[in-house]
Design a protein around this nucleic acid. Structure first.
Lengths: 396, 396
DNA sequence: CAGGATTAGTTAATGCTATTTACTAACTCT
DNA sequence: AGAGTTAGTAAATAGCATTAACTAATCCTG
């Protein structure tokens, strides 16, 4: 049944059309420069179907034709590309340490961005600040000249699957916030789709959506910042984020690793976040709330206490990666979040632990690739923009 | 893209037709006795579409008409039911302690069953034994008189997502077994679909497929036997088992709960199975391989060592249930597997731990329902039969 | 008990979809 | 220049769900 994440019920011909349009778009996104005939071959659709869909997408400014193919024999095909000039999607992130706003084109390229390094307090106030950032972005003539497909917002907590509402953000102290409504009160534009999602989900979506070449079956984006989140995406042509009953799929930060262990922000004990997370490192190593965690700790690396704490946290992160493989089993793992700025002192022990503790089943198959995103400042915001594009593609 | 689990690529009209047929079938399955008009209202399809699909399904022996509705005013509708008389599906399970075979009708009712309590040794030999059981079942005149939709087989290990092949069954000692091919060599009938899946996935599918009334968003079937497995199913009208890259989704038995803990069968250390599983209880409490674990332990409950071990294992099971909620987040949890025969000494501590350690997020929402299946002897086999039905419905 | 109201279900026409088939277009090679 | 080859388009076709108009079967009212 349709909800705010998946807009239409299956059953009618529109659904079929959307599906095929999304399939063709994802093929062009993954393999820029294919001709109509290549797409038909690759997707199994007929030349006629591909031709008509491509032509409509061209008229609407989604696709453009490029140079001619010069393969021996026969009429050359016209190569096709996503049109990076006509449309934009806006993406925003409300993070524990700041607000970020981006404008991306259909290629996923960041055309402009704004950031404000403040710690959000009340939802209303935060919405107002974010609205000003978005207005500033829309004031940019290069952005204003384009057609805007909509706005996606990423927040550091689970979003209800039934409605675009933030359930709980322990690290902001927010509960049941209808953030899009607060934004609407401050902001008229852009027209188009407005979406809300969890930060890790948005980041995961963006990373998956703009992958080039054959996409992995699924990816997990493990976001290690103040808290630990994880987003999963799968689906070749129609990427889907599994959310579960309460939107908690991938909330591995609150899986219990130590029965009756240290108390966690979430009200339970012994969660993964008590072993590895920004807030735990801050508390245990005494870093002030207003100081940069990574800068402070990197400056204190010669203290044995600090390096040992990072190594310990790193091993916990490696263990989490391992557990992820036995519960969500993604075909690719992406590490992101502000803790990645700590670099090798945290990441090396994580990867080492992950490598050393593979069991027979994992050893038997190819090692799952791990990608580390060192600077994920705009990753979630760009991912939210990608979600807008995917949604808009359904309705073109 | 199509594979042995999901047969057709989206894009053509057949796909749409299958989708609508499945939608209508699942509505009748969940709400027996609805009329065509009720179905149209409930699914959003038009009366004409529902009528034509229902009539075809009736001709093919999937649906039958029942009594007339007697609602005040207007022409009464003809109630519709799945036809339990025409078709059968066969399901089989190869378990660590025995083979089971069942024949079910479209209502999910077990019409006949066969069991053989032996511990499987070689795959070939096991396939031969299973083939004899199936032949015995097909020899039953009540079964032979019906049209058979196919055969589903459940095995205690992950099945590759790309091909119907068992990857690894640590508790059988099997690796990369093409079990359906071995069966084919022994068995001609039944015609129709032949499927292979993991035992927990099959059980989960069956439990979800035949749920009456509004189905939960998703369920997880936690199978606690010799090992610990878990299957997940979601999708209202078109139930899907998320499998992940290597078919390991839900393999929480091998999530690590104790860093560098006790050695596990899987080659790693500190897995959940080292804290709760049949093999671990057997080893730690000295129960012979050929004795019934549950019977032996229930007889020794007055030994403090035994009751303490069960309580400890129970708490670990509760912790696993909690972690399940933060990774796969099902809306309903079903506990099954042979360990459930231990009853309260194991299950009560599990439920108590689960209840006592809910965090703020879970506390905030309605408690997730937990169902305990005391006797799951035929659950996986019936689930495999349900998978056959779902697949056959696509192709009717 | 006749006739209106109401709901169930079917039928025929319609519009939209992808597919099929046949075509034109554009290039290379000989 | 002409044959061969591949790309792309156009018109005809088949299949799908929908629409709108119909028939069917019941209840209710007077």
């Amino acid at each position: 049944m349709p909800n705010h994440f998946t807009p239409h019920a299956a059953g009618d011909l529109n659904y079929l059309k959307s599906l095929n349009r999304s399939t063709i778009l994802s093929t062009v996104r993954r393999y820029p420069g294919l001709s109509r005939a290549d797409i038909a071959l690759r997707t199994g659709l007929t030349k006629a179907t591909v031709g008509s869909v491509v032509n409509v997408l061209g008229e609407r400014g989604w696709l453009r034709e490029g140079e001619l193919h010069a393969r021996g024999g026969g009429r050359p095909g016209r190569s096709l590309y996503l049109d990076g000039e006509q449309h934009v999607m806006l993406g925003a992130e409300v993070g524990v340490k700041g607000l970020r706003v981006v404008a991306c084109n259909l290629l996923g390229e960041r055309l402009a961005s704004q950031r404000l390094d403040v710690s959000p307090t009340m939802p209303e106030e935060t919405a107002a600040m974010l609205a000003r950032l978005i207005e500033a972005l829309l004031g940019d003539p290069a952005i204003a000249a384009r057609s805007c497909l909509g706005l996606g917002v990423a927040l550091p907590g689970p979003v209800a699957p039934q409605a675009p509402i933030l359930r709980l953000a322990p690290n902001l102290g927010w509960v049941d916030v209808d953030f899009l409504a607060l934004l609407r009160a401050e902001l008229d534009s852009p027209a188009g789709v407005w979406l809300l999602d969890n930060e890790a989900n948005a980041a995961a979506f963006g990373e998956f959506y703009f992958i080039q070449g054959t996409p992995p079956e699924s990816i997990a984006y493990l976001s290690a910042g103040s808290g630990i989140g994880c987003g999963v995406v799968s689906g070749e042509h129609f990427p889907v984020i599994p959310r579960g009953h309460q939107g908690l799929v991938g909330e591995i930060g609150h899986t219990v690793l130590v029965a009756d262990g240290a108390p966690c922000h979430c009200g339970n004990h012994g969660c993964a976040e008590t072993l590895v997370s920004g807030w735990m490192l801050r508390e245990s190593l005494g870093v002030a709330a207003d100081a940069s965690l990574s800068a402070s700790l990197l400056a204190r690396l010669d203290e044995p206490e600090v390096s040992a704490a990072l190594a310990r946290a790193g091993r916990a992160l490696g263990l989490l990666m391992l557990n992820l493989h036995h519960t969500l089993n993604p075909s690719m793992l992406i590490l992101g979040g502000s803790l990645m700025r700590l670099g090798a002192p945290l990441v090396a022990p994580a990867l080492a632990y992950f490598d050393a503790h593979q069991n027979d089943l994992l050893r038997q198959s190819q090692r799952v690739p791990v990608k580390v995103v060192e600077d994920s400042t705009f990753t979630a915001a760009c991912g939210a923009a990608a979600q807008v594009m995917a949604r808009a593609a359904i309705e073109v």
